[in-house]
Every structure is written in structure tokens, then in C-alpha cells.
Design a protein around this nucleic acid. Sequence first.
DNA 1: TTGTGTGAAAGTTTTCACAGCA
DNA 2: TGCTGTGAAAACTTTCACACAA
Lengths: 210, 210
Amino acid sequence: MKQTSQKISVPKATMKRYPIYLKALRKLQSNGVTRILSKELAEYCDIQATTIRRDFSFIGSLGKQGYGYDVDHIVNIFDDLLGTHYEEEIIMVGVGNLGKALLNYNRWGQVVGEIVCGFDSDPSKVGIINDIPIYHIDELEEKMPKHCRVAIITVPENVQDIVDRLVEAGIKGFVDFSHEHVLAPKGVIIKQVDIVSAIQELVFQSNNLD
Amino acid sequence: MKQTSQKISVPKATMKRYPIYLKALRKLQSNGVTRILSKELAEYCDIQATTIRRDFSFIGSLGKQGYGYDVDHIVNIFDDLLGTHYEEEIIMVGVGNLGKALLNYNRWGQVVGEIVCGFDSDPSKVGIINDIPIYHIDELEEKMPKHCRVAIITVPENVQDIVDRLVEAGIKGFVDFSHEHVLAPKGVIIKQVDIVSAIQELVFQSNNLD
DNA sequence: TTGTGTGAAAGTTTTCACAGCA
DNA sequence: TGCTGTGAAAACTTTCACACAA
């Protein structure tokens, strides 16, 4: 694992915003913006300027007083921080419609790393999709690169079994797209990207709005 | 819009946990569990018992002292609260692999409502998928049911244009699967379900762990 | 007796206010 | 002068500790 900077301590709430900043800054960069004030970025991201300044300050003194922030410079710093420069090798379990959709997303390289192979329990899925080899799930331990740390799970059911097996095989972080209830041991992180919960939250929020 | 209970004030942090509780409780229910203690649910969800009790207390006194919580009863209450009983009618914009994957997810009715129609800019997508009519995006204003409040966006680009147009048409809440930077006017909620950001957070977290 | 519901304490996050650098 | 970086205050969230209902 490449490790460019020493570990820094960042509040959880801040950590959730870093990807938002990187996303916004990349967009600005591609629009030719080379310099930005915390106030401008605040309006652009809908996050308070002072929150942005404090979030940035955990990494170091990135800005110039009376001037603002250099866009290229901080995009680079966030790229480092958020893994774009780590060339993370990711495996995918489940190659149905959702899995295929993610495999087709051909901008992985620019954002975080690449999907190196996929697994599915359906033998008819085995083969090559989008230049990425797909193996049968029975070959998981055998075909999975040994240093892989991150797995994307797109199967709808029995997610816990798959997580247990992958943890055993050395995976440390999961992105799970199911609406299942899953637990992982200490030191293993599961990010649930759960559309059903998102809609529930949405409906609840709008029903309880002013 | 059906509105069974009067509005209650719930902290944001709590609101994020309600879908987790409902998910867990449904699972327990389907396993035949009829009664549960905050302590047991705590272990099951990996959330402190006292946090759970306070979260529940915003809704009312759901439990019985010295006894615990009746699973059926609180599943019902959360169902009400989180929209399952609202029969939300949802539209989908973008019917590629990702859109199809979501349309195939045949458990919407149990969890939040149903997808009533889809739209795509590719004329070859127009037709019927999974019993759900798909129209050309040009027909959006015409074909979209007037009372729709929630839209799912699965297109990868130009999301801002689509959001603007849908807000104009009356949509109040979005679930957006893109990795784009998007803003919405006050009173409109956008939930970003963003796998790229999820992986970035994951990588950053594991690189900065212990 | 047992476990909920809740005041009060502790911890975290956001916001204010301004010193100090370019 | 104008904006960042940051102490200190305010707001929010979690956790503790225990009164009290069943």
C-alpha cells in the first residue's frame, strides 16, 4: 500500500465532505478556474465557508491569506488523500445489471482505481465483460489478487455470507449495494450504498419539512 | 399526499438511523422474533442501546418498561414514518444498465412505493421494461404523473439540467446515482448515492486507520 | 426486578469573531 | 485591504446514570 503522507487525524464529519470538495474542485478545474475563495466554494458546494476552511486546515495550510486557494494544488492534495493516486485494485462480486452498470463506468481510473476482476454464482456470467475477467464465485480465493483490500458487492441477498468469506480472504473495505442487514468485524469498513434507505430518508424528510 | 401522523421533530442524525432500524427489525420479524430489548437491537445494529432508546423516544413511548419493544408494533410505526405506507409514486430518468437493475428490483412495494414510469434520451429504450412504461425524455412534462414528488436519476452526465427540469415539473426529492456536482433550490432534497465517493471515503478511512 | 425513557454530562461539529499574513 | 486559519462559543449528538412503570 502506497502511503505518501503521514496519518492525519480528521473528524468523521469532515471526512464525509472531502469527496464532495474533490468532485467540485475537479469540475471547477475543468472549467478553467485556477483560483478560488472559500466563500465561492461554499456557494458552489452549499457548505459554509468557515466549515470548508476548517476542513482544509486539518490537512495543512493550503490557502494563501488574502488570496484564496490554488485549485490545481488542492485537487492534487485531495487526489492523494482520497486514493486516486493509490491505484486501488477492486474486485466486484455479482455481475448482474447493477454490476455491469458499474463495470461500464469507464472513469474509474480518474477517480479511485480499477476493477480488476468480477465473480458471480451464475456460470453463464463467467467470461470477459468490458475487458474485465469474470470468474465463478467458487474460484474466489484462487483468482482474487492477494493484495486486494476493497470489494464492491452488488448481489441482492446473502450478503453476510459473502462478506464473511471476503473478510476471511483479506478484504478490509466493502461497498455494499444491497438493502440487507450486514455486520463486519472491527477494522473492516462497510459502506452501505442503499437506494431503498435513501428513498425512505427522502420521503420521511419531505413529509416532516416545515 | 397521505399524512397519517402529525409532524414530529427529529434530529438529522436520528433520521439517518431510522431506515437502519426498520431494515433490521424487518429481518428479525421474518425470523420470527416478536419482542426485542434495546440492548439486543443494539448488538444487532451496532448502535448503542441508549442511542436507540432516545431515537425511538422522539416518536413516542414505543416500549414497555421491564419488557422491551414489540417488533410487529414498531415495524408498523416505522413503515408509516418512512413512507412504505405512503405508496410513493416514483419516476426514473435514465434506463441504462443501472436503471434496469433498479427496475428489476422487485421489492419496491414492500419498502417504499413503486416506479411508475421511466424516461430516456435514447429512442431505442422507449417501450416497456418489467411492466413499466418507458418514454422519451422529450415527453417528460406530458407523461409524468402530476403528483409525483420523487425521481431517481441514473444518467451519468448533465444531471444538473435534468434536475432543473424536474424541479420545474414539481419534483421535490431526488436520488442521484451520478458522481456529478449538483445543486437544488431550497425545499428540494437531493440524496447522492455515489459509489465513487463511497470508495474514496473507504480508502481514505483505511489509510488513516489506527 | 428489569429495562425503558429522560435529565444532565460529555463529546463532537458548526459557527462566530478576529488576529495575522500576503 | 481581504481572506485564511483558528481560538472560543454555540449547537448538536451521544453517553451516563437513574427514576419509574410494568
